[in-house]
Amino acid sequence: MTLHLDVVVATRDVRATLDLGDGETVAILGPNGSGKSTLLATIAGIVRPDTGSATLDGTTLFDTASGTWRPPHDRGTALLAQDPLLFPHLTVLDNVAFGPRSARIARSEAHVIARRWLDEVDAGDLAGRKPSQLSGGQAQRVAIARALAADPHLLLLDEPMAALDVTVVPAMRQVLKRVLAGRSAVIVTHDVLDALLLADRVVVMEAGRVVEQGPTKDVLARPRSSFGAGIAGLNLARGQVESGTVRTRSGLVVAGLHHDATVPDGQQAVAVFSPSAVSVHREQPGGSPRNVFATTVRELEPRGSQVRVQTDELSADVTAPVVAELDLMPGTPVFLAVKASEVSIYSA
């Protein structure tokens, strides 16, 4: 299974290409409105692109140049959305058997297939229920089974866990990890953990364009887009290299280590560092850190045992006692310090 997609959807300002190898799972990350779901919808045949083409395993899904358009039911691309959308008038078993039945498989055989997939997602005991009798997590597991029972060439998942209670997300992620193994799938998500655990490769979209893509670990470790960095929880400063440091447009000068290769002066580069490497001070700190930034606290956001201190551009993770000790609140002027050894610089 291979997918090649190249589309323009003018009304939503989406211009993107996407390639998928056999058995590969790609995660599309990006902020709301960046065109992730639109991209998925063009593959599924729900949105007609203005121009472009897509081929799946050599079969043309659509090609505006030749006027080819394969209807959604004839594409072999099952779509799983945020909302499970189980057919309310059918039992769980009949919901899952819907795909096989639509493929003209006899009812009894379709039920056998349905039961197998229900077992696969640990929902075998729900077969006789109506969708109204399911919890959100149960319904989404059934929806996964239903999508898989249709035996799609390509599985499309549009934020499949966004509507779920946080307590059931980890279990659902395990189910997805199991069923996606070795399967061709595109998953739209905003959760970095989904990308890390489920995807082989990550595509980051911003404002309708693919801004960055690559193996998941690389993108998360060395994000080149602000969204990539944001979802990885990293600080990112983009600018021009001057004497080995990165000078941003806003005037920040960040020193760091050039990992892959030294980026020559005058070139564009990004400096990336983790918020946990950043310390917060009320007075200008002395000593070793080469990077000190005078800024103002904008927001305090609890994150487990830590508190994320969001400033104008950068963020820092500190403990709650530190926040109390420094008497931090939005509007407090502070100094952020980070050791140059904690900062990675890549060409951008």
Binding site: A44, G45, I46, P71, P72, H73, D74, R75, G76, T77, A78, L79, A81, D83, L85, F87, F98, G99, R101, S102, A103, R146, A147, A150, L156
Partner: peptide, 20 residues
């Protein structure tokens, strides 16, 4: 929305009409 899901599961328009 249910009709869209049914179509992506491989149901032809007549099947979607009849079953969904």
């Amino acid at each position: 929305q249910y009709e869209v899901v049914a179509a992506t599961l491989g149901a032809r328009p007549t099947t979607v009409l009849r079953r969904v």
